[in-house]
Design a protein around this nucleic acid. Structure first.
Lengths: 138, 138
DNA sequence: TTATTTTTTAGATAAAATCTAAATCCGAGG
DNA sequence: CCTCGGATTTAGATTTTATCTAAAAAATAA
């Protein structure tokens, strides 16, 4: 796994303490957190990083394709520092968002002429742990 | 194409003038509009429908799976009244959102145990019309 | 019709993200 | 190491998107 300093250098971005903290938070928390969750996590560490910086950093890194942005239908944008091809699954019962491996043959080909910069494959439903349970809460 | 009255009946929803107007707007505008765009469109028609009603109606209809909600990464949620299986493509140059047909074999299978309620396959990039053009504006 | 329930409404509120402009930091060049 | 200029950070204001509230209106049931 690339460290935060290397990752920033590869993106051609200056190395700042704030950017490193955001990257390292995402590397430690593979839960697809929102900007707000990252901000609160850093606050608890007394990192002294402002909310605007968290948003700025996430925006800058995603412009460099150093992280994925996820709009998976439960409000705020979520972020994923692992950028190798995979799909996402969100459980309607427990709320967790899981990475789903994607094989090459799972990637849909678009008609000639489209230039793809990004693709997102999202599933919503009940995960194996929640699927068997009573549906009363639904 | 089902008319708005039939569509509401099929969902077990009361038939109101406001709901019919929202459904008919979506049937006439296959551009994947936002709630705000629908509201403004109805205002121009002097439909006298409030913003809250547009949001309420969209939420009610999507809970009944009578329409798709799209979070395709450019801000507000977008809506699509055509609910047969298809993917979406958003052009970074001209901004349009296109429907992309999906064959059965394009649908990825998840591992055993997952219960899928919804799946979304979104592509972002440059459409055939914009792909050839100068990249200066990017 | 009358009663009951559902829906609509305008405006207030909340949530998510961006903007602003002043302060601070980074790092290239000396 | 030090300085300078551009890049970055910051707190708070603002904007955007969506939801909440409770009273009024409309739809449905009796």
């Amino acid at each position: 796994m690339k460290n935060s300093r290397e990752l920033l250098a590869d993106c051609g971005l200056n190395c700042t303490k704030e950017r490193m903290l955001v990257i390292e938070y995402l590397q430690r928390h593979r839960t697809h957190p929102t900007a707000e969750e990252i901000y609160e996590g850093l606050c608890k560490m007394n990192a002294g990083v402002s909310r605007a910086t968290v948003f700025n950093t996430l925006k800058t890194l995603s412009a460099q394709k150093a992280l994925l942005t996820l709009q998976i239908g439960d409000g705020a944008t979520r972020y994923d520092i692992y950028t190798t091809r995979h799909a996402h699954f969100r459980c309607l019962n427990c709320g967790k968002i899981e990475d789903i491996p994607m094989r090459k043959e799972d990637v849909m080909q678009l008609p000639q002429g489209y230039e793809i910069c990004q693709s997102d494959y999202h599933f919503t439903g009940y995960c194996p742990e929640c699927s068997g349970k009573s549906h009363i809460l639904r």
